[in-house]
Every structure is written in structure tokens, then in C-alpha cells.
């Protein structure tokens, strides 16, 4: 098992966001966590990345504990990770190629000419031309930013790639392009992927397995093919997008999702 989560808890004051999450992400598979806005998906992802410290529970990545790990240990662990942020989170002050090659230069100490070459090669993998390399993020469209963010996430050939709402804010065609790129990049690298989204089109395209997060816990988990006949009323309401059903649509998490 690449990632093994047991009894994960996280609260912000009296708001108990994660209330005992159990989740397994098998090696080489793409697992997608679905759930409504404010259900705690982003908090779960940030706990795995070590950006938020969990209150209790265990997160094992390749058998190494993330919860309570030192900053130095987390820095080393993160060399295995690639991450595509919801807003792409590109560094405004750096040109595209430096964004893409940032992990190579900062963490792996690759020389700038070689890093630039590898950045341009990675940009080509996500369908961007070398001309984009010297542009700044402010000059790019939303779809191009996502592609650059994807290129940055895969440039160091990580073992595990995280996707935070990869298609949010994109038109349907660009969403499909990004989904295809995610699928291709993950399978080419042989990486393990963990995504969070509420876009069912994206789920059907990029997931091997799906888990649904509701009320601070994983309430259903299974292969993507079985999601249509899950037999779980919460899952059925969510994937069909009905306002009526057992899901409390008033439930919100203030701290970033």
C-alpha cells in the first residue's frame, strides 16, 4: 500500500472536519476522493502533504509516518510528491520554465541550463510549446496555468501525485484535455495518484477507485465502475447532483474546504 490512513482526525476549534478517516491508496492506482464543497477534502490532502498537522491518527507513506514527523523528515518525504493545486499556485515572480523546473533546481540542485532543458521537455508533454517557457504566469490563460502546474507536478518524476480540484474553473473541453493529460502523465510515470474533486466527469476519467467523504468520514469506497450502482444513498445523490436526499447541503468547513 502506497498510502495508508487510519483514524485521521482534524478539528478547527469546535468544527470537527475529519472524524476518523480510514483510506488506502494502492501502489500505481489512481484514487479519487469525492465530496461536497466544505466536506474537508482539501484538509485531508493537506494533512497527507504535511501542510496541516493532524490532531490524531496515522498517515503512512511507503511505511513512513507523516503525522508528527519533523520538518526535515517531511522535506525529504516530499521529494516523492508532486502536487497540482486548484489555482495552479504558480510563482508569479518566475517565468514558466523556472516554475516547472523549480523542484529540480531547489531540491535536486540541477544546474539552470539543464533544468531549463528538462522544463521545456516537460512542457511538451502537457502540450505547451517552448515559446511559453519564457512567459510569466500572469500572461497565461486558466487552462495553460493548469498545464504548467501539471508540468511542475510531474517534472521531478514523483512517485505520488496529488491533484486538488484539477478541473475547477475550466470549460468542459479544457477540463477533458486536463483529465486526459492527468491520465497519460500518471500512467507514463507509473505513479500513484490521489485526487480530490466534485467534478464527476473528472472522476469517471481519471479514477481507478473512488472514495466518498461525508461528515468527516469515508462513507463509501470502491472501484470507479461500481459507483453507478453503489447502493449508498449519499453517493447516489452526489453523483446525480440532486438537491433532495440524505446529504445535508448546509454543512460547511470554513478552513479551505
Amino acid at each position: 500500500m502506497k498510502i495508508r490512513i487510519r483514524g485521521l482526525r482534524k478539528s478547527f476549534g469546535s468544527n470537527h472536519v475529519l472524524q476518523g478517516i480510514d483510506l488506502d491508496v494502492p501502489q500505481g492506482q489512481s484514487v479519487v476522493v469525492i465530496g461536497g464543497s466544505g466536506s474537508g477534502k482539501s484538509v485531508l490532502l493537506k494533512c497527507i502533504l504535511g501542510l496541516i498537522e493532524a490532531d490524531a491518527g496515522s498517515i503512512l507513506v511507503d511505511g513512513e509516518e507523516v503525522v508528527g514527523a519533523s520538518a526535515r523528515r517531511l522535506t525529504t518525504l516530499r521529494t516523492k510528491f508532486g502536487m497540482l493545486f486548484q489555482s495552479a499556485a504558480l510563482f508569479d515572480s518566475l517565468p514558466v520554465w523556472e516554475n516547472v523546473a523549480f523542484g529540480l533546481m531547489a531540491a535536486e540542485r540541477t544546474e539552470r541550463p539543464e533544468a531549463r532543458e528538462r522544463a521545456i521537455q516537460t512542457l511538451a508533454k502537457v502540450g505547451l510549446t517552448p515559446a511559453v517557457a519564457d512567459q510569466f504566469p500572469s500572461e497565461l490563460s486558466g487552462g495553460m496555468k493548469k498545464r504548467v502546474g501539471l508540468a511542475r507536478a510531474i517534472c521531478t518524476a514523483p512517485e505520488i501525485i496529488f491533484f486538488d480540484e484539477p478541473t475547477t474553473g475550466l470549460d468542459p473541453i479544457m477540463s477533458d484535455v486536463i483529465n486526459d493529460l492527468i491520465r497519460t502523465c500518471v500512467s507514463d510515470l507509473g505513479a500513484t495518484a490521489l485526487s480530490i474533486t466534485h467534478d464527476m466527469g473528472s472522476v469517471r476519467k481519471i479514477a481507478d477507485r473512488v472514495a466518498m467523504l461525508y461528515d468527516g468520514a469515508i462513507i463509501w469506497e470502491g472501484p470507479v465502475a461500481s459507483i453507478e450502482d453503489s447502493g449508498n444513498p449519499y453517493v447516489e445523490q452526489f453523483i446525480r447532483g440532486h438537491a433532495d436526499g440524505p446529504i445535508d447541503v448546509g454543512q460547511k468547513v470554513p478552513a479551505g474546504g
Binding site: G50, L51, A71, R78, F85, S87, F91, G103, A106, R152
Partner: peptide
Amino acid sequence: AELGTMRVTEQIDALSTLSTDPLRY
């Protein structure tokens, strides 16, 4: 303003995921 914008647009989190200590960088 620069660091604040980087914080709210998750750029500081992105630095951490790229194995770079934001305080050091």
C-alpha cells in the same frame, strides 16, 4: 503584500510541496 498574496494563493504551500523551506527561500 508579496508574501501575503503568495500565502492566500497557496504559493507558499506549493514551495513546501517542492521540498523547499519557505522560511529559508
